[in-house]
Design a protein around this nucleic acid. Structure first.
Lengths: 333, 333
DNA sequence: CTGTTAGCGCCTTCAA
DNA sequence: TTGAAGGCGCTAACAG
């Protein structure tokens, strides 16, 4: 019952060859006579030999595993990215160590430490922004890193994103074209660079182009939760806003339902456009109009990029912007 | 810039002790004089030494990483479980290798192979049921395994679940009490043991207790998707059913919206109760009544159980049933 | 309390 | 085309 671990040495003995030869056939090395190769393969099969990846990792200094730092797997946006990462990873025979960071600086550092200790060959970092301290750690290590769905303010590290500024501008412009001048800007956490810098700029550019003055009271800070949105709806109700750009679907769903509960008709009295396009957009009633972000692809592309980096290939462009779209559903006219 | 990897040997030399001593302080071993301990710690700090977990794994035969086989991280139910698993794992200083299986038999086997090659100390398996072949592989390996949110028909492997039969029975009974006799049973994929055996039994028991004859035409097979539900709504509309038990929230949301679009009033004309209680239940309008499952806890408890197994502690009860509840929202009267 | 000495299982020159 | 031998970085007896 207790199958003792069979090692490369056992295989070698049984096959009457040296372990070097076994290693060669296991690793698909060219220079092995077909006959001995077959012989070895047969023994491997018979003994049910499975190469020990840990030993292999120690000897070869490659673990074929990559670390994935994610704020929270239960977040629909990030889990979709993670799926893209894993699919491409397994395509290239890598495994992923997934570590939740809760977007907390200290947790991230600790997680990174673990990952490096485990000798991961590369790291995919997800987060709403890259903190100073973490960026330092990254640059101190020799492991390649790619950011997926997050921005690096100093553009030091390869990233895969969409053009958040342009997307936000497009979305807001759409609202403006529908006749709105009082447009609430509710991107989520305003501390995050992605909101504070990129999205806000897009919002402002859209206003400017339309000759609408920027009004600070139209900017709202919020948690990325349904309840935060639901409560924010009351606040919103008391303003002169007639439309809103919202940075996340759950938040938008909360706002939508909160507004609806107060008797506001969406989109007749109030229009909403959200920024992510998760499944939620189809489930709310009315359905949420949204910027469509290729989440899965962002993860997949980031991982693909990482494989190149790990192979020491040159990356032509380290800052990819994937295409996005705008999907009109029922919360816009 | 290129920091050569500092090894335990470097630390030993710098501190003027043997590597064994360094190993001792790194591993918090008792028998080290405080003075030398401090000395070593200082050097470790100065050299920025980080133990190589791969080497450690090879020498100690423990990798402090566990494998997590998950159908799909983007599934709200499973990602919630995964979060529970990861939190407890990191609490016990384990990392998790997450691998998506798409609930596919061949992928699962392949993933398991990888995990075992990587010498994981344990495995948390998530899935809607445990396939014969996989169970065999499990029992052939010496790695402890626990199922989270999935059933093992032969109760061979430790599991953490809720009592699906009882929960379904409660939910259906609630519907019956509200006056329904034509209750659709839409658990999702009827091939899965969890539906075919456990939930179906609960449904039947509830009917039986109420003296209602089981009607096969009230049983519907469906994919776990919003669209499947949306389309099923039409089918449902054509039957005499006046209420439904649904096995998953997305599916339920689809049914709800589909019915609503056809002019059916929920809950006045039709009641729905769903089986998971993800965030979706609060987002739909009307909000979905639901069985509440402690997803996060299931993952957490499963992982905690696994730590015990990995420590070779005895498990009193290998088949845990966590408490569940029924939350009445707006799709039931 | 500390050092010495074998490995852990595999990869990888270097010779043959 | 194959084998021998030396690590990879660390743990774990076993001495002292």
């Amino acid at each position: 019952m207790e199958k003792e671990n069979v090692t490369i040495y056992d295989v070698a003995r049984e096959a009457g060859v040296s372990m070097a030869t076994v290693s060669r056939v296991v690793n698909g090395n060219s220079n092995v006579k077909q006959a001995t190769k077959d012989k070895v393969l047969a023994v491997i099969d018979r003994l049910d030999y499975r190469p020990n990846a840990v030993a292999r990792g120690l000897a070869s200094k490659k673990t074929t595993t990559v670390g994935v730092i994610i704020p929270d797997v239960t977040d629909m946006f990030f889990s979709e990215l993670a799926r893209g990462v894993d699919d491409v990873a397994s395509m290239y025979h890598y495994n992923i160590i997934l570590a939740n960071s809760d977007d907390s600086g200290t947790k991230e550092l600790q997680v990174l430490e673990n990952l490096l200790a485990k000798q991961v060959d590369g790291i995919v970092y997800m987060g709403n922004g890259l903190r100073e301290q973490l960026r330092n750690q990254f640059s101190h290590s020799n492991v390649p890193i790619v950011l997926a769905g997050g921005v690096d303010e100093v553009n030091q590290i390869p990233t895969v994103n969409i053009d958040y500024t342009a997307a936000t501008k497009d979305a807001v412009t759409k609202l403006i074209k529908n006749g709105h001048t009082q447009i609430a800007f509710i991107p989520g956490n305003m501390q995050q660079a992605i909101n504070q810098k990129y999205r806000l700029r897009g919002y402002q550019e859209a206003l400017e182009e339309a000759g609408i003055a920027f009004d600070e009271t139209m900017v709202f800070d919020a948690q990325y939760t349904y309840n935060a949105g639901f409560e924010l709806a009351n606040e919103l109700y008391a303003t002169t806003a007639t439309a809103a750009f919202v940075g996340a679907d759950e938040l938008a769903a909360g706002i939508l339902n909160g507004l609806t509960d107060r008797g506001v008709n969406v989109p007749e009295d109030f229009e909403i456009i959200t920024a992510i396009n998760t499944k939620l957009t189809q489930i709310t009633r009315p359905q949420l109009s949204s910027i469509s972000i290729p989440m899965y692809d962002m993860g997949a592309v980031a991982m693909r990029m990482l494989t190149k980096l790990m192979d020491k290939e040159n990356i032509e462009n380290g800052h990819l912007s994937l295409p996005y779209g705008i999907i009109s559903r029922q919360t816009t006219r």
